[in-house]
Amino acid sequence: MAALIKATNITKVYHKTSVPVHAINNLSVEIAEGEFTAIVGPSGCGKTTLLNILGGLDQPTSGTVMIDGVDISRMKDSDLIDFRLHNIGFVFQAYNLIPVLTALENIEFIMLLQKRSRKERVARAKELLEQMNIADKADHRPGELSGGQQQRVAVARALASNPRFILADEPTANLDSVSTENLLDLMARINREQKATFIFSTHDQRVMDKARRLIRLVDGAIVSDDVRS
C-alpha cells in the first residue's frame, strides 16, 4: 500500500539555549492509510515534536515530510494552514475546545472554515455527536462537560473535516480509566468502520495495547517499529 505519510531523514534541532537540542535525529517513517499507530517512548524522546512535524504544525530543520505526495516541510505558512484544515485532524491532550462555543458549534467551527453550508455542518455535527454517544450534550459548553465528554467532542471535531488522518497527542493523559477505555474503543471502531487513520503519541499502556502498530522512540530516533496482526 502506498504511504499516506512519508517522512524522510527528518531532523529537528532547537536552539533555544546555548546548547542545541536534537529533538528528532535523522528519522524516517512511513504510515499507510487506515493505520492505528501509537508513537511511544519516555518523556522528552521527541513524540510530540514528531507529531507536530507530521501534522504541519512545526517544520523539520532538515528532511522532508510528504503527505499524499505533497511536500509539507517547506510549505508557506498560509498554504500549510489550508492544508491542515482539509487534510489533518487534531486531538490534543488538554482537549482545547473553544470554551465559548457549544459542543455542536465546536464541531461546526472547522466545517465553517471549510466553507460548508450551515445545513451540512449541523447535520454532520449532529451525526458525529451521535457516533460519540454525546448527542444530548450538543448545547453544552466545554465547561459543562466532563473530561471524557470533552475529548469525545475533540475527536468529533477532528473527524468533522473529513481529514486524511488524525493526530492525537496523548489523548488519554487527562482521562480516568473508564473514559480512556470508552474513548479508545470509540476511536478503534471509527478506524475499523471508516478506515480513518489515527496516529497517537502516548505513554499510556492502554493505548499501546489497542494500537496495531507501535513505533518506539528514544532520543529522537526510532528504536523499534512493531506491527501487530
Binding site: 488538554a94 472554515l113 471535531r157 473535516s161
Partner: peptide, 16 residues
C-alpha cells in the same frame, strides 16, 4: 494564547 494557537492549528487563517 493556547486557544488562538489551536484555532490556527485547526486551519483558521491568520486573517480570520
Amino acid at each position: 494564547v493556547r486557544e488562538v494557537g489551536v484555532m490556527i492549528a485547526l486551519g483558521t487563517r491568520r486573517g480570520r
